[in-house]
Simulated scan of single mutants.
Amino acid sequence: MIFGTGTDVCDLRRIAATLARRGDKFPERVLGPGEMKVFQYRRAKVEARGLAYLGTRFSCKEAFSKAIGLGLHMPMSWRACEILNHASGQPYIRLHGELADWFAARRLRAHVTLSDESDYAVSFVVVEQDD
């Protein structure tokens, strides 16, 4: 059964402006440890790839928070939700701490897709509840 859906569109130019204004404090606030490693690797190779990665993760967390109906209120927090990729490239959501417990207690599972272009990132999340 569908528990919730969420979508988000993110303007990467706004992410770039925030990154320029706040420096590394912004990705440190938004990204979990696994995401931070990928962000730093991609950013070191090509700045635009790092920016796109940060934007897709920001967008996806916004979409996930909408799908679970909490917005950015506890137990949902930026760093408790990581958007990672399987070896195949397929994105998936890994949750930590209280958010993981909250999610498991409700027997939920999430499906996610995300994409980016030069100026925008978009994400869509479907959360199902097991019967």
Results as ranks from 00 to 15, higher is better:
Ile2Gly: 09
Leu31His: 03
Gly89Leu: 06
Glu128Leu: 04
Ala17Arg: 13
Ala67Thr: 10
Lys45Val: 08
Leu31Phe: 01
Gly23Ala: 06
Met36Gly: 03
Gly55Pro: 11
Gly71Leu: 02
Trp78Arg: 01
Ser115Tyr: 06
Cys81Ile: 07
Met1Lys: 09
Ile83Leu: 07
His96Trp: 01
Tyr41His: 15
Arg42Thr: 11
Leu99Arg: 05
Phe64Val: 08
Ala52Gly: 12
Ala20Leu: 13
Phe39Cys: 00
Ser88Gln: 12
Ser65Leu: 08
Glu62Ile: 05
Pro33Ile: 04
Ala121Pro: 08
Ala48Gln: 15
Ala44Tyr: 11
Glu47Thr: 10
Glu62His: 05
Asp119Gln: 13
Phe103Val: 06
Leu19Ser: 07
Gly34Arg: 11
Val126Lys: 02
Gly97Lys: 05
Phe26Ile: 01
Gln40Leu: 15
His96Arg: 01
Ala63Arg: 08
His73Lys: 10
Ser123Gln: 10
Asp24His: 07
Cys81Lys: 01
Glu62Leu: 02
Gln129Arg: 03
Arg94Tyr: 00
Val38Arg: 14
Glu117Val: 04
Leu54Asn: 00
Lys45Gly: 05
Asn85Ser: 02
Ala44Val: 00
Ala17Ile: 06
Thr7Ser: 13
Gly55Arg: 02
Asp24Val: 02
Leu114Tyr: 01
Pro75Thr: 04
Thr5Gly: 10
Tyr120His: 09
Pro33His: 13
Ala80Gln: 08
Arg43Asp: 13
Trp78Val: 00
Ser88Glu: 13
Ala44Thr: 10
Val112Asn: 12
Ser118Pro: 14
Leu19His: 05
His86Gln: 12
Asp131Cys: 10
Phe124Tyr: 08
Ile83Asn: 04
Val126Pro: 13
Ser88Asp: 15
Tyr53His: 12
Lys25Ser: 15
Ala52Trp: 10
Gly50Ser: 06
Asp101Ile: 05
His111Gln: 12
Met36Trp: 10
Glu35Lys: 00
Phe3Ile: 03
Cys81Asp: 12
Gly34Trp: 04
Thr113Leu: 05
Val46Gly: 11
Ala44Asp: 15
Arg29Thr: 07
Leu84Tyr: 02
Glu128Asp: 13
Asp131Trp: 10
Lys45His: 13
Ser77Gly: 13
Gln129Val: 13
Asp101Leu: 14
Arg106Glu: 03
Leu51Pro: 10
Lys66Ile: 10
Lys66Asp: 08
Gly69Ala: 09
Pro27Tyr: 04
Phe39Trp: 01
Leu51Trp: 09
His73Gly: 10
Gly97Cys: 09
Phe64Leu: 15
Asp130Trp: 07
Val126Glu: 14
Lys25Tyr: 10
Arg94Val: 01
Gln90Asp: 12
Pro75Leu: 00
Arg106Met: 01
Ile93Cys: 04
Ile2Glu: 14
Ala20Trp: 06
Leu51Asp: 12
His111Ile: 02
Ala104Met: 09
Cys81Arg: 01
Ser88Trp: 03
Arg106Lys: 03
Gly6Asn: 06
Arg49Ile: 02
Ala80Ile: 01
Ala16Cys: 11
Ala105Lys: 09
Val125Gln: 09
Arg57Cys: 06
Val125Ala: 05
Met76Ala: 14
Lys66Ala: 03
Leu114Pro: 03
Val46Leu: 14
Asp131His: 12
Met74Thr: 15
Gly89Gln: 12
Thr7Leu: 14
Glu62Tyr: 03
Cys81Pro: 07
Glu62Thr: 05
Arg57Thr: 03
Leu31Gly: 04
Arg49His: 13
Ile83Gln: 05
Phe124Gly: 04
Leu70Asn: 13
Trp102Pro: 03
